[in-house]
Each structure stands twice: as structure tokens, then as C-alpha cells.
């Protein structure tokens, strides 16, 4: 089981790097899907079953398909976009590496872990998450529907060629 953690982590890191480095956007999307499926495996390892299912449905099912649709409809796969200059790319790598080191050093030994509650392996099941969601977080849950409908209206307005056509 511990082997599984490191196996999934290696898959995630490698596919995430390939997302950044691969030439065509289609390959990037495929590697991102692999990365997300490995992440669903991590959720299952953490016994967060509700999140694992929602992650598969929302990310791999909806968002990645949306990306693929846009790439195919706009024919972006052959888009000849020049690379950044090598100076900018070296600067990007150095920046990301320094960010990694700084955050890691900041979180390394600054706190000691004391579990807040007694260990309970059932917190990620649908019934427990649902109870918390619909008792303590009911108002944010309802407000998020407003966010959704406003983003949907915004996307449709952007998609229109001209607002006067309405």
C-alpha cells in the first residue's frame, strides 16, 4: 500500500512535467488526464471516496472534455506559437525551482503535527461529507449555484459574436 503512494506520485510528477514540456496541446491534455486519474487514486488511498468520484466526474469527465472540444473545434493543435526566448525560459525554471525550495523549507520543520480529532477513517464517505455539507455549509453551497449561473451567462455572452445580436 505504501508502494502504491509512491507509484502514483511518480506518475503524477512525470505526467505533470510532460504537460508542460510536450509540443502539441492534445498531448498535454492527455497527460493532464493521466495526472488527474492518478490523483483520484490518491483520494482513494486517503479514503476520500466522495472526492475521488467527484474528481473523476468533474475533472476528467467535464473539464478535460471541454479542453479537448475547444482544441478540436478551433483547430489549435497545429498552432505555430513561437517558444519564449531561452533567457525567459531559464528565468522561469529558476523561479519555479526557487519557489519549490522556499515553500518546502518554510513548511519543513516549522510545525509539529498534532491530530485535531481522534482518528476516524469514515470522514471521506458520502454520508459524512454530506452531513457536513448540508448542515454547516448549506449557505455557501446555495450561493455557489449563483456563481455557476453567472459564469454560465458570462460564457454565453463571451461566445456571442456581438452583443447586439441578442
Amino acid at each position: 500500500m505504501i508502494f502504491l503512494f509512491y507509484f502514483l506520485s511518480a506518475i503524477m510528477i512525470i505526467s505533470a512535467l510532460l504537460v508542460v514540456l510536450s509540443r502539441s496541446p492534445i498531448n498535454s491534455v492527455i497527460f493532464l488526464i493521466i495526472c488527474f486519474i492518478a490523483m483520484a487514486g490518491h483520494y482513494i488511498l486517503l479514503n476520500a471516496q466522495f472526492l475521488a468520484v467527484v474528481h473523476i466526474i468533474v475533472y476528467t469527465g467535464a473539464i478535460m472534455v471541454l479542453f479537448l472540444f475547444v482544441i478540436m473545434l478551433l483547430n489549435l493543435n497545429k498552432a505555430n506559437i513561437p517558444q519564449k526566448t531561452s533567457l525567459t525560459r531559464i528565468a522561469a525554471v529558476v523561479t519555479a525551482g526557487l519557489f519549490f525550495l522556499v515553500i518546502l523549507a518554510a513548511t519543513r520543520h516549522t510545525f509539529e503535527f498534532h491530530a485535531r480529532y481522534a482518528f476516524n477513517s469514515n470522514i471521506g464517505l458520502v454520508s459524512d461529507v454530506g452531513k457536513v455539507l448540508f448542515h454547516e455549509f448549506l449557505l455557501p453551497f446555495e450561493i455557489s449555484s449563483i456563481l455557476f449561473i453567472s459564469s454560465m451567462i458570462g460564457a454565453v455572452m463571451f461566445g456571442k459574436r456581438d452583443v447586439k445580436e441578442l
Binding site: 486517503l46 479514503n47 476520500a48 472526492l51 491530530a115 480529532y117 471521506g124 459524512d128 457536513v132 455549509f137
Partner: peptide
């Protein structure tokens, strides 16, 4: 999962 607190999920 480590704190056994479902609010984070």
C-alpha cells in the same frame, strides 16, 4: 484525512 476533520473535504 490526517486530522479526521471532514470540513476540509
Amino acid at each position: 484525512a490526517y486530522h479526521s476533520d471532514p470540513a476540509a473535504q
